[in-house]
Each structure stands twice: as C-alpha cells, then as structure tokens.
C-alpha cells in the first residue's frame, strides 16, 4: 500500500512538473498564412506571428507534408539588394516578445512544394521550438 502511494505520488508529481515546464516555456503562434503559388514555382513561404513565452526560446525547425523540405530563412535588404539567407540555427523568440515572420523578413521556406496552394486551403505545419517543443498549426492560403 505504501509502495502504491509512493508510485502514485511520483506519477502526480511528474505530471505537475511536466505541466509547469510546458507552461513556463510556452509560445503561441497566430496568423499563419502563405500565398497562392504559381504552378511552376518550386518554392513558397509561410508567415506568422510568434509570441514568446516567459522564457527565451528558439524556433529550430518546421516541417510540412506539403513541402519536400522546409527551412527557416530571412530576406535581408542591403542598399537595394535583396539576399535570402538560410537560418540553420533557427529564429530566436525572446521571452515576452512577438517575432513576426513576414514578407521581406523571416519566413518558413517551403522547398519542393508537393501540392498546389489554392486560396482558402489550410496547410498543416509542425513547428519545433527548443523550449516549448512541438507546436502544430495551420497556415491559411491567401490570394495576396
């Protein structure tokens, strides 16, 4: 009986700790979207607003069945010249701050697009954060 009580307490404690850990580093992702893609466009981009939790975090990767490969990129303007850079280290999401993935800046790059992106479609994306873990979202496809 004592052993059972101990096991139960350990399980309860574990659940509570897991819940605390999750809430401490939680992030929230809103307004995820992408644009309709030309049929011959191999690549596409997804944008979103990532609201940081109570601790610093990093978006380390993204994946989607709609893309052969999914990477994190940034477009940088320098003296009128635009360059796109791969961000293998991820995108920092400071605590309490909102990081915008938006046109001309950070974006999730969908390489080797596997399906048509039609206005109104909802594309499932899985985001991996260093602290918050896996966050599943849907990106709305818009005619923009």
């Amino acid at each position: 009986m004592t052993a059972m009580k101990t096991v139960s307490m350990v399980i309860v404690l574990g659940v509570v700790l897991a819940a605390c850990s999750s809430s401490e580093s939680s992030v929230s992702v809103d307004e995820a979207w992408g644009r309709t893609s030309p049929a011959t466009a191999t690549n596409a981009a997804f944008y979103m607003a990532i609201e940081g939790g109570s601790e610093d975090d990093t978006l380390v990767s993204a994946s989607s069945d709609a893309c052969g490969v999914t990477e994190l990129h940034i477009s940088v303007m320098n003296d009128g010249v635009m360059s796109m850079q791969h961000l293998p280290e991820g995108i920092a999401v400071p605590a309490g701050e909102t990081v915008m993935l938006e046109p001309g800046s950070f974006h999730v790059m969908c390489i080797d697009r596997q399906q048509d992106f039609v206005a109104g479609d909802s594309i499932p994306l899985t985001l991996e954060f260093a602290g918050a873990g896996t966050v599943a979202i849907n990106a709305e496809i818009r005619e923009e």
Binding site: V69, E71, V81, M82, S83, M84, Q85
Partner: peptide, 21 residues
C-alpha cells in the same frame, strides 16, 4: 542592376542576391 548567385547551406542549392527595385 546587381545580381549574383551565392552558394547556400539551403537544400535549394544556390540562391541569387539581386537588386529588388
């Protein structure tokens, strides 16, 4: 107009830096 292909760690291969005006 300036443009130049640049090798990248991206699986897309090279990317092209270019004047965006």
């Amino acid at each position: 107009v300036y443009y130049e292909p640049e090798e990248s760690t991206s699986s897309v291969g090279y990317l092209v830096n270019h004047t965006a005006t």
